[in-house]
Design a protein around this nucleic acid. Structure first.
Length: 571
RNA sequence: UCCGGGGUCGUCCAAUGGCAGGACAACGGCCUUUGGCGCCGUUGAUCGGGGUUCGAAUCCCUGCCCCGGAACCA
């Protein structure tokens, strides 16, 4: 309809390319594969974090771009550490981010029978054997990076004997750890993973999905390639630490002579001012440093969701950071920029006062009130307007008044005139203090001629501040978050220290704010921009009689930067 | 020490033998009824040393540095 091009939704994004996509194009061109099929293979033993979102978005994004398929597969081969709770949480997170696995939700454990048959095949081929060594002996005989290992005395056991033993392992005849099935490769291989790796271990344990059906469980290296092969995955994308495992991935598939996907590794994501590992999350939660795995200060997807991050922002972030093989630490400012960018375009504005200072408009008629039209979203004309009530007594932000304003401070000060957004120009005529000399109230005059915010005589003010009516505003709790850690790298500690030492004591500040009445009853998850302050999201702890907001991210604050710079200059 | 990876602005990612570019950050300005958004600009990098080439971030040699690898974890 409009002849002005829409620049908000039509952001031209160059077709992403990276070494993985180049490999895939090459594979397609050379005929190694004639289609693309990826998978996201979390182990159901922890909550997903933004690093997983990166991997997920590489997997899913590539499938999408190449017109291929994408599977969600739980790599649940270790019964002693996996739980249904995590399966449910992960499914929720993956769906929230927006990856669509259609009808392809799989579990590695569903392939146990096929894996067993293939193991039997390998034994018969003389490429695997049952080993009676203890874990300690296995470690000792593996050798070291610089020295070869020594063959297990069971290495040349006959295929018939191994087969018999393996069947009895499955039947439950042996204790946990008594025997293993090992691949017969090369105990002198420079790659330690090739020194007769364990394929199966005995675990008399209940599996969250298989119950008590099995007492032998496959190891990752044995299982993963088989899972990929069974599902017809073309490109098995994983993180750098699996690079050393690739020869083994290939070896198993080659020995079996079955469909062979290609494994490609990329660097995992790190972010400044936070930590990104399950172990550390546990330490933070158990130590009471955060409220849980969905604490809005954590980079878990559950935490980010609760904080108010949008899936769009996370996806945008994932595409902005790209993919490579260098270990990288992305500035969390990049993530914040992504969410600001999304929320700026899509969230409704509202006025809320974090730290209220009462203002009495001494020339405003007592007992009167009126309403002003306020724009819901200047970035989106279709978002419309709303009414905001106004009266003789209002609150403004305490920080928007200075009795002794520093240079470049444009806001309210004695004798100075500013604009109340959408309302009137007001001028400060009196400052009321308590016995301690603290400012408790301001007396101002308003100019009725400036109704709506413009002066007929054309005079200008340098500042516009937000406000709420004293009577007709509602109270709410605001949880103001900052970086969880004080240092960009939380592991930057004194020798013997812990990342816990770098925790930011001010990462959460709880304040009672006053907010325009229209937001009363907003449902958890609802997002707003609190004008001049930041983006906020109704928390899940919120209820009808108690509104609670999480600050997703502050607005960019030029004044704060100026003030900080002046502070630096003084010192 | 052995094996496998990797070193480009402060950060992340491009440049695939042909003008080292973008984003974030920082800084300066314009605009503004959000000190927001937007717009304009500035600063700023090829790990070192040799070589090949008309021409090297890219190819070769060499040195240095960083990451990963010796669970019956994934």
């Amino acid at each position: 309809m409009s002849d002005t091009p829409d620049t908000t939704t039509d952001t031209p994004r160059p077709e992403p390319t990276d070494f993985i996509r180049e490999f895939i194009k090459q594979d397609l061109a050379e005929g190694r594969f004639d289609r693309v099929h990826t998978r996201f293979p979390p182990e159901p033993n922890a909550y997903l974090h933004i690093g997983h979102a990166k991997a997920l978005w590489i997997d899913y994004g590539i499938a999408l771009e190449f017109g291929g398929k994408f599977n969600l597969r739980f790599d649940d081969t270790n019964p002693t550490r996996e739980e249904q709770e995590f399966v449910d949480a992960i499914i929720e997170d993956v769906r929230w981010v927006g990856a669509d696995w259609e009808d392809r939700l799989f579990f590695g454990s569903d392939y146990f029978e096929q894996m067993y048959e293939w193991a039997v095949d390998l034994i018969k081929k003389g490429r695997a054997y049952v080993c009676d060594l203890t874990p300690e002996q296995v470690i000792e005989m593996r050798g070291a990076p610089t020295s070869p290992g020594t063959d297990s005395p069971y290495r040349n056991r006959s295929a018939r004997e191994s087969l018999d033993l393996f069947q009895r392992m499955r039947a439950g005849e042996f204790e946990d750890g008594a025997r293993t099935l090992r691949a017969k490769i090369d105990m002198a291989a420079p790659n330690l993973h090739m020194r007769d790796p364990v394929m199966y271990r005995i675990r008399h344990a209940h599996h969250h999905r298989q119950g008590d059906k099995w007492c032998i469980y496959p190891m990752y290296d044995w299982a993963h390639g088989l899972e990929d092969s069974i599902e017809g995955i073309t490109h098995s994308l994983c993180s750098l630490e699996y690079e050393n495992h690739r020869p083994l991935y290939d070896w198993f598939l080659d020995q079996l002579g079955i469909y062979h996907p290609r494994q490609i590794e990329f660097a995992r994501l790190n972010l400044t001012y936070t930590v990104m590992s399950k172990r550390r999350f546990i330490e933070l939660v158990d130590g009471g440093h955060v409220s849980g795995y969905d604490d809005p200060r954590l980079p878990t997807l559950a935490g980010l969701r609760r904080r108010g991050y949008t899936p769009e922002a996370i996806k945008d972030f994932c595409s902005r950071i790209g993919v490579a093989k260098v270990d990288s630490v992305v500035d969390v400012a990049m993530l914040q920029d992504c969410v600001r960018d999304d929320l700026n375009r899509n969230s409704h504005r509202v006025m809320a006062v974090m730290n209220p200072l009462k203002v009495v408009l001494v020339n405003y008629p007592e007992g009167e009130s009126e309403e002003f039209d306020a724009i819901n979203n200047p970035e989106d004309p279709t978002a419309g307007t709303r009414k905001v009530p106004f009266g003789r007594e209002i609150y403004i932000e305490r920080d928007d008044f200075r009795e002794d304003p520093p240079p470049k401070y444009f806001r309210l000060a004695p004798g100075r005139e500013i604009r109340l957004r959408y309302a009137y120009f007001i001028k400060c005529v009196d400052v009321i203090k308590d016995a301690n000399g603290e400012v408790v109230e301001l007396h101002c005059t308003y100019d009725p001629e400036t109704r709506g915010g413009d002066a007929p005589d054309g005079r200008k003010v340098k500042a516009t501040v937000h406000w709420v009516a004293a009577e007709q505003s509602v109270e709410a709790q605001a949880r103001l978050y900052d970086h969880l850690f004080m240092k960009p790298n939380p592991d930057d500690v004194e020798p013997g220290g812990s990342f816990i030492d770098n925790l930011n004591p001010n990462s959460l500040q709880v304040v009672n704010c006053r907010i325009e009445p229209g937001v009363g009853g907003a449902a958890p998850g609802t997002r707003y921009q609190f004008e001049r302050q930041g983006y906020f999201c109704v928390d899940s702890d919120s209820s009808a009689d108690k509104l609670i907001f999480n600050r997703t991210v502050t607005l960019r604050d030029t004044w704060a930067r100026i003030e900080k710079a002046m502070g630096r200059k003084k010192q």
